[in-house]
Design a protein around this nucleic acid. Sequence first.
DNA 1: CTAGGGTGTTACCGGTCTGTAACTTCCAGA
DNA 2: TCTGGAAGTTACAGACCGGTAACACCCTAG
Lengths: 196, 196
Amino acid sequence: MTDGVVERSRPRDRILETARDMFHKHGIKGVGVDAITEAAGTNKMTLYRHFESKDELIVECLRANAAKAGAMWDAFEAEFPGDKLAQLHAWVGKAAAMLNTDGRGCDMANAAAELTEPDHPARLVIKELKEAQRERLVTLCRGAGIGQAELLADTLSLLFEGARVSVQTVGAEGPSTQFVRMAEGLIVSFRGTAAG
Amino acid sequence: MTDGVVERSRPRDRILETARDMFHKHGIKGVGVDAITEAAGTNKMTLYRHFESKDELIVECLRANAAKAGAMWDAFEAEFPGDKLAQLHAWVGKAAAMLNTDGRGCDMANAAAELTEPDHPARLVIKELKEAQRERLVTLCRGAGIGQAELLADTLSLLFEGARVSVQTVGAEGPSTQFVRMAEGLIVSFRGTAAG
DNA sequence: CTAGGGTGTTACCGGTCTGTAACTTCCAGA
DNA sequence: TCTGGAAGTTACAGACCGGTAACACCCTAG
């Protein structure tokens, strides 16, 4: 019941969506393929007809997460076309909202914590997405006329990442409650010393 | 070989130390009790004579981590007695050094990512340690004469936490390289607006 | 020397894991 | 209506998981 997502669609999509949800909630090693297929209203054979292994399913889930994250950034551009500063503030707001959805942190970071083999195929996807997100944040900061755009982007990035794990360890009432204040303060501070 | 730690000491200590090391390297769910006891140069029965379950072993490992972290804070006080500002800078340095030891993040955060059951006994230990660390950081900031001590402590805390997961996802050459600059900049900035 | 507790050894239990084989059912398109 | 491919079903392989029982051993304290 809690892990539903059994609407009528192609089995592959249901498996992917269900796996994403269950990996997010229970961790990757905490979910078996049997549980996924059952929750997706299908069976193990069908899963292995569409994904050659659990590892490939994991990678595909992470890619789907990356796509969703990319769509979020596009939404910022669509809402505030050309106004990078407004997009930056929108990102802060969206990030803060994410902190209060559930107690689970970033799927990418969690996956990195679980999949310790240094050559696991998922690690590449994780690194790519994280670097892409940094790039987009840098672009926003630069476009907002901030001098040390890279430094601000990295600082905000670490702050958000830290806030997500803080929610996971001490809960949503911990230091993460101050995230917006910290982020906005940093933006003001960096704009004050702008070189553009 | 890589997971040695089989020196001659009481079996319980060897098990605890070996488990700590292996949990750190391979994750909690990535290591079985058989592998631990073998690496510790003992056997499963001996493990279950000293720990009533794997979960209790996990908790005990986290407690040992907490104790080690506590010792680190005490070392700051011992090295710079009474000088909270110097201790704060020492913490920044120590934190930065930790980022370059290995690619694995904080054991507590990783454990929180893996142990998703909300009432898992380990979650309590994790929360306690994280709150204790925040408390100590706040004390340092307050003792250093910083007005908004809580806010600075929380900011530094999130920054460090974020840096550790960043190392785990994109590697040590990512945004975490700027950690010291960010932290020191924040300290300067907060001291500038000190309220006495 | 002896007694006893900590330790090591072997075998096992029931369960779960990823992954596969062989077969049946269903359904859409020609 | 026929056909081919996608999906479902059942059973299984082989490995590993956490945890336990029964018993042999060794070393030290008395």
